[in-house]
Amino acid sequence: MNLLHNDVITAFLRLPMTLRILFISIFIIATFGITITFIEPNKFPSFFDGIWWAIITTSTVGYGDYVPDTFLGKLTAILLIFIGVGFISTYFVALATTAVSKQNAFLEGKSTYKGDNHIVIIGWNERSKALIKSLILEHSKASITLIDASLEKNPMPDSIHFIHGNPNLDETLIMANIAGADKVMITSDQGKDELHADMNSILTLLAVKGLNPTVSCIVEILKTEQVSNAKRAGADQIMETNSLTSFVMHSSLSSQDTMITFLDLLNQFKEKKLEIVPLQDREFQKNIDYITLSSHLLKEGKLLLGVKREGHTFFNPTAAFPIKAGDKVIVIT
């Protein structure tokens, strides 16, 4: 019996402060409410009337519809006011404090993300900022978690969940629920030189894959020499930012008109959507060539750019290029 009693006390003490104060307040209200019905049964004909009086008294509302007349009844009311009002006030103060603490923890990146199938973006910079805005415009209910060690507060509290910490550490990734993430984007740290930025990105990739080997990871790499290391670490897709920038600059020097057209095409992607669609979802998947498939898609308002097959991409193949089951088509919608 003593062991059961100790277990109950231990379980009670482990409850959050707000719940403990609430249970104590309910116990006090019930005890005094029932007691007053025994002391003054004429004034308080039922237990409900007594409990109603106790609630009104401890909340300091004081309607006056039930008032004790006897000395013992008034003494009970005095004790209730001294004991009950203090606990009720403490409960609401603790409740407000807890709400404020949780809000501050959310803004400061100290609260754990508890959702699943979310997108984790590592690193706060202009690229990740633009990416988050694009994701929100595309899917207003997109679940996005940002991990960054340099920010002090959530930069977009209405749109994302923020985790403040080093993304190389397991405890930070666990707070972001990396095990339940759908995709991870690792951006390069602009505060470091290119080599150390790449090393930091690869180390973060290793930490992510260690906790969730199956999650799709997109990694930004600055130096071409580190691409092979990123692949060994398990990167599913690598963004060579410097190579892409050099290509654009070189093309601008070679043919300004061509590059302006290319950049205009990229800007169109902000309004239109580039999609890779599995062919098996389509009704005309058998005995069809590239030009026939292109005609079908044009009728749906989609421009066919190419075909993906077994890891290879074929852009604008010949008109007679055969389309096979299992192919994926690259279209602009």
Rank of each mutant, 00 (worst) to 15 (best):
L297V: 04
E300Q: 01
S143V: 14
F314G: 01
K299Q: 15
V184K: 09
R232M: 08
I83F: 14
N267Q: 03
Y66L: 03
I330H: 06
S134C: 01
K114Y: 11
S59T: 05
S89D: 06
N166F: 05
I218V: 15
T204L: 05
L303W: 15
I186A: 01
V329Y: 15
L304G: 02
I21V: 07
S111M: 13
A207S: 04
D182H: 05
F23H: 12
N316M: 11
D327Y: 11
T98Q: 15
V248H: 00
I119T: 03
L135R: 04
A179L: 12
F106E: 09
H164G: 13
G115S: 07
A207Q: 06
I34G: 11
S134N: 09
L279S: 11
H250P: 04
A99H: 06
F48V: 10
L274T: 15
S150I: 09
I163S: 11
R127L: 06
P167F: 10
I51R: 02
L15R: 04
F247W: 00
K286P: 04
E240Y: 00
I51M: 06
G84C: 04
E40Q: 13
V329T: 15
V248K: 00
T258D: 04
I9G: 03
L265Q: 00
G301F: 07
R127K: 11
I78W: 02
Q285W: 12
L244P: 02
H296N: 07
G33Q: 13
D182E: 03
E275P: 07
N42F: 07
Q190N: 09
I39W: 01
P155K: 14
N316V: 08
I202T: 10
I39A: 02
L135S: 03
K74F: 08
I291P: 03
F82Y: 15
L265G: 03
L211N: 08
I36E: 02
N287L: 12
D193A: 00
R14P: 02
G73N: 06
Q285K: 15
V67F: 12
P68I: 12
I202M: 14
S101R: 15
